[in-house]
Amino acid sequence: MLGLPLGLIHLLNALFVLAAVAAGPQGPWDDRGYTRISTACFLSLCLSVIGGLITLVPSVRRAMGAWWLAPPLVLGAVAYVRMATLA
């Protein structure tokens, strides 16, 4: 039962990361493209924090295991790198 909300959060997070990595601005003049990518990265970072905090609750960690910390860490790192290298 605990895996369903975490799975949905991680799936949504992965979709935001995919959108941020796959899409690129059309050129240096494309301000909307840069804004969309940075928004997807920001939402992905927020979902990574939420997923990590849910996983760190002792009852969830005991029932689900510590490996559930890997998806928010990996997806958050990818989103952060994409946002940092966007310029």
Results as ranks from 00 to 15, higher is better:
Val78Trp: 05
Leu69Phe: 09
Ala87Lys: 08
Arg61Met: 05
Pro28Ser: 15
Leu53Lys: 11
Ala22Gly: 05
Pro5Arg: 12
Leu11Trp: 02
Leu12Phe: 11
Gly52Trp: 00
Ile9Pro: 00
Val57Tyr: 07
Ile50Gly: 00
Met1Thr: 13
Ser59Leu: 06
Leu6Gly: 00
Pro28Ile: 15
Trp67Arg: 07
Gly76Trp: 04
Gly76Phe: 01
Leu56Lys: 07
Val60Ser: 01
Cys41Lys: 10
Phe42Met: 10
Ser44Val: 13
His10Phe: 05
Trp68Arg: 03
Pro72Asn: 02
Trp67Gln: 09
Leu12Trp: 11
Leu18Ser: 13
Leu12Asp: 15
Thr85Pro: 09
Val17His: 08
Leu43Asn: 12
His10Ser: 04
Leu8Ile: 12
Leu12Glu: 14
Pro5Ile: 12
Leu43Trp: 13
Leu73Thr: 12
Cys41Trp: 11
Pro58Ile: 02
Gly51Tyr: 00
Ala23Pro: 03
Ser44Ile: 13
Tyr80Ile: 08
Met1Asp: 15
Leu4Asn: 14
Ile37Asn: 01
Ala19Arg: 15
Leu47Ala: 07
Leu53Gln: 12
Met83Arg: 09
Val49Ser: 15
Pro25Thr: 02
Phe42Trp: 10
Ala22Lys: 08
Leu43Cys: 13
Ala77Cys: 10
Ile37Val: 08
Trp29Ala: 13
Leu6Asn: 00
Thr55Gly: 01
Ala19Cys: 08
Leu2Pro: 01
Ala70Cys: 06
Val74Cys: 11
Thr85Lys: 11
Asn13Arg: 01
Leu69Ser: 04
Leu75Val: 06
Gly52Asp: 02
Gly52Leu: 05
Trp67Phe: 08
Arg36Cys: 07
Ala22Asp: 05
Val57Asn: 06
Gly52His: 03
